[in-house]
Design a protein around this nucleic acid. Structure first.
Length: 277
DNA sequence: CGAAACTCCTGAGCGC
DNA sequence: TGCGCTCAGGAGTTTC
């Protein structure tokens, strides 16, 4: 499931396509998160001029048009020989030079959309700061946390607060910070906000350096898998002993998703004593 | 307005 | 070997 490091890894692996021109476009399954534009053929003859990332969106800027792409949960791009056979769940193919860029997405939660002519799109309008930019800082996060009683983990995963922090990295950052994921956000201290920012930054940067995590079937455009999964401390380890204290890792559900934590290393806040944690 | 539920989809894992 | 079930989950949309 691509998170920010996987998307950044994908972006970098596609940079060899810069300055190449699209010769052919084929769409075999247009039904993604939203329908693939019917006029995707407009790309024919256009040259890829830049490949940028905002949050988990990729922005492919061609001569006239810009394509906004999201990998959803199971999406990936692969660069293959132009005549390579299609695999199951390959939905779109762009031929550039001797190679084809194939969009593959079993669950079809991803999307390919045109932006407006100025590169803007409603999906990009309300995004918070990039976690690795100066715009993401302890004071800002603290202010955001103060505004709500939602569980801190849910807030960390809110794209209006900070982008690119999905379930894996929110889970890992909270473990490293020793904070229980269900802690009401407004009870997080300024010092804890400081620690959270540090860990979110460090974990994301480390994952990018390692080529992205690979919890299901993430592969970059060369088909290389990442290997960050070896260093996970809490995510996906329910029932297994905590790597720090051997206490069995537990899970609870927050905002419709599994949240793994160590009950000893991430004790519930004192105000949560009577709740079912 | 905020918060939580709902929704899209397929493959993996499990019990029988 | 296969069937039916549950779960996973990014994030936009709907509902309260």
């Amino acid at each position: 499931m691509p998170e920010l490091p996987e998307v950044e890894t994908t972006r970098r692996s596609l940079l060899p396509l810069l300055d190449r021109t699209v010769q052919a476009i084929e769409v075999r399954q247009p039904r993604l998160r939203w329908p693939v534009p019917e006029d995707l053929q407009r790309l024919q003859g256009q040259t890829l001029q830049a490949l940028d990332r905002r949050a988990k969106y990729l922005l492919a800027r061609f001569g006239q048009d810009t394509l906004l792409m999201h990998l959803g949960m199971s999406g990936s791009f692969r660069l293959v020989p132009a005549d390579a056979p299609w695999r199951k769940h390959d939905h779109v193919s762009l031929t550039l030079g001797e190679q084809a860029l194939r969009y593959h997405d079993p669950r079809r939660f991803g999307c390919l959309l045109w932006t407006a002519s100025d590169g803007s799109h409603p999906l990009l309008d309300h995004l918070g700061p990039e976690p690795l930019s100066a715009g993401f800082h302890p004071e800002g996060l603290y202010q955001q946390l103060q505004r709500t009683r939602r569980a801190v983990k849910v807030v960390l995963m809110d794209n209006a607060v900070v982008v690119g922090v999905g379930n894996i990295y929110a889970t890992e950052a909270l473990f490293q910070a020793g904070i229980h994921p269900a802690t009401p956000a407004h009870l997080i201290t300024r010092a804890q906000a400081d620690v959270l920012v540090q860990h979110i930054r460090r974990i994301l940067q480390q994952a990018i350096d390692l080529g992205g995590s690979t919890l299901r079937d993430f592969v970059d455009a060369q088909g290389e898998t990442g290997y960050f999964q070896q260093t996970l401390w809490a995510y996906g380890r329910a029932g297994e002993p905590c790597r720090q204290c051997q206490t069995p890792v537990q899970t609870l559900r927050l905002g419709q998703r599994a949240s793994a934590f160590c009950p000893k290393c991430q004790p519930p806040h004192k105000t949560m004593a009577n709740a079912a944690f």
